[in-house]
Simulated scan of single mutants.
Amino acid sequence: MSYDAIDDAFHFISDAPLGERRALVHRPSGKVFLASLKAGFDECPAGADTDPDYLPIPHRQELDPGKPLVLEFIRDNCPAELARVEGFFNRPGAFRNVKDLLRRRHLLDNWQIFEMQQMEVLLKQWCLAQGLMS
């Protein structure tokens, strides 16, 4: 099974709003099928939605730990801002406010690298839990 194909499909669906795109992996062959409602194409075989051999690849929002990931980064990179960042999550716009803070502290690039690495770890854990990798 190719992790790269699953990773590519994960990014394909995660680059659109939740539900707009989907991807299925065929467990026995490892082949990945893509679909996009907006673009009007669907590579998925008929009946794949009810066939247990086909597994939907999750959207980023389904794997993203959100606030705990942000707080982990803040604790490791600017712990003096921890209380402030926790306060952001008590009102709307928390992630925008966090990114603004990180931009002002010149940590936005570090955050993006950290977030990308953590999402890769989470996707690999999902693959292991689904028996797609060993």
Rank of each mutant, 00 (worst) to 15 (best):
I74Q: 02
W126A: 10
L37K: 11
P79K: 02
V32H: 00
D51H: 05
L132R: 03
A83C: 10
N77I: 12
C78P: 05
N110Y: 00
L132N: 05
G131T: 11
L122S: 06
L108C: 09
S36H: 02
R105T: 05
M116G: 13
G40C: 10
G131S: 08
P68L: 01
G131R: 09
N110T: 12
A48E: 08
A48S: 12
L123H: 03
E86T: 07
R96T: 15
D51S: 06
A129T: 12
A80W: 00
N77H: 13
F33K: 01
I74W: 01
P52Y: 01
L108K: 07
F73Y: 09
L128A: 14
C78H: 02
A94I: 08
F88I: 11
A94Q: 06
N97R: 15
L69I: 11
R105F: 06
N77D: 06
G93M: 08
P56N: 08
E86W: 02
Q118Y: 03
H59M: 02
E86L: 09
K99V: 10
E72M: 06
C127F: 05
A35N: 00
I74S: 04
Q112D: 14
E43G: 01
R96Q: 12
L102E: 09
V70F: 02
E120Y: 00
L37D: 15
E115A: 08
I57L: 06
E81K: 09
P92H: 02
K99G: 12
W111G: 06
N77G: 00
F95Y: 15
E43H: 01
N90T: 15
K38M: 10
Q130G: 06
K99E: 14
A83G: 15
L102A: 10
R103N: 12
C127H: 03
L128D: 05
H59V: 13
F33E: 08
P68H: 00
E115D: 13
L37T: 15
L132Q: 06
F95T: 15
R84S: 11
R96K: 14
F95G: 09
G40S: 10
P79T: 10
D64T: 05
M116T: 15
N90Q: 13
C44P: 03
P65A: 04
F41T: 10
R84K: 13
N110D: 13
D49P: 06
